[in-house]
């Protein structure tokens, strides 16, 4: 007994010395990687407050006398407020649709036993492999026939379809870990499955839904490809498409470009900082093990 204990103490002491060295190295490495993210962003924001000629000659100096000119130009040249609104309409609706449809489907897939269950699982899992390229042209034609070109719905529905499978699988992973007892108790008290879904499953699965919401939102907000093809009127452009256009027209004006990047990144940064804890919670809870 005593032998084991002293052996243990010695080991702890040894590890402590090694630990100090290791910790230093670890913090150095982590900070170095963190710098690539922080400095890149800082460089852009810093330069967005400088005149374009200053950027070309010296992009490192701190913008001591920040000038708002680039932002004024950006807001004058483009209807950025409108683009934000469009982005939030599109991504917001996509998130809601995905959560509703995926929530219902995942619940059914984890709780019911039926003959086609495995086949259906393959249908969901398989479609994750389809890249947007392989469906875009027929989708464009369908959206055309439905007269939804340049209509937010023309983007929302295809986006919902392409993020749905991912959402179902993440939610399935989470829901399958939820204990059945609560549901049984509720059933005894006379709840039907719809009540159970709304009163028990939904509240319990909040972290998983948050994960799905964040990923869906980011993918939808940042999806240049589908938006570029379907949305063809300038007043329907979301922020990403608008940014792409700014770059093709004013690519030589580094100051304007820097301010445009800042404008696009800012809202996601805010959303992310507020919701980031949920990402980890949702993934921890089930997505991975499932």
């Amino acid at each position: 007994m005593g032998k084991t204990a002293s052996n243990f103490d010695r080991l702890v002491k040894q590890t402590r010395i090694k630990n100090i060295l290791a910790k230093t190295f670890i913090y150095l490495f982590l900070s170095a990687w963190a710098m690539t993210t922080i400095y890149a962003l800082f460089w852009v924001v810093n330069n967005s407050f400088k005149d374009k000629t200053v950027i070309l000659s010296d992009s490192f100096s701190l913008a001591v006398n920040p000038i708002p000119d680039n932002y004024i130009t950006a807001f004058n040249k483009m209807n950025i407020g409108r683009a934000y609104l469009n982005s939030f309409i599109i991504s917001g609706c996509t998130v809601i649709f995905v959560m509703i449809l995926a929530g219902l489907a995942a619940y059914a897939m984890t709780r019911y036993n039926f003959r086609l269950k495995n086949t259906l699982y393959m249908v969901f899992a398989g479609s994750i492999l389809f890249p947007a390229f392989s469906t875009i042209v027929p989708i464009f034609k369908m959206v055309l026939d439905m007269k939804l070109v340049s209509n937010p719905l023309g983007v929302i529905i295809p986006q919902t379809a392409s993020y749905l499978s991912f959402a179902i699988i993440v939610l399935m992973g989470f829901m399958s870990n939820l204990p059945l007892e609560l549901e049984e108790a509720a059933f005894m008290e006379g709840c039907n499955v719809f009540n159970i879904f709304a009163r028990i499953i939904l509240p319990l699965s909040k972290p998983a839904f948050a994960t799905v919401a964040i990923f869906t939102f980011c993918w939808s907000y940042n999806d240049l490809f589908v938006q570029m093809v379907i949305l063809r009127k300038r007043d329907t452009y979301p922020i990403c498409t608008l940014l792409n256009e700014i770059s093709s027209q004013f690519g030589t004006d580094f100051g304007l470009m820097a301010s445009a990047v800042t404008i696009v990144v800012f809202p996601v940064l805010i959303v992310y900082l507020f919701l980031q804890n949920n990402i980890v919670k949702g993934l921890t809870a089930g997505a991975i093990k499932g």
């Binding site: 055309l144 007269k147 070109v149 340049s150 063809r232 009127k233 093709s248």
Partner: peptide, 16 residues
Amino acid sequence: DETWKARVTTDFSSGN
């Protein structure tokens, strides 16, 4: 540019 031209013709063919 070429992208813009392609966009205009697609606009016309897409009922837009």
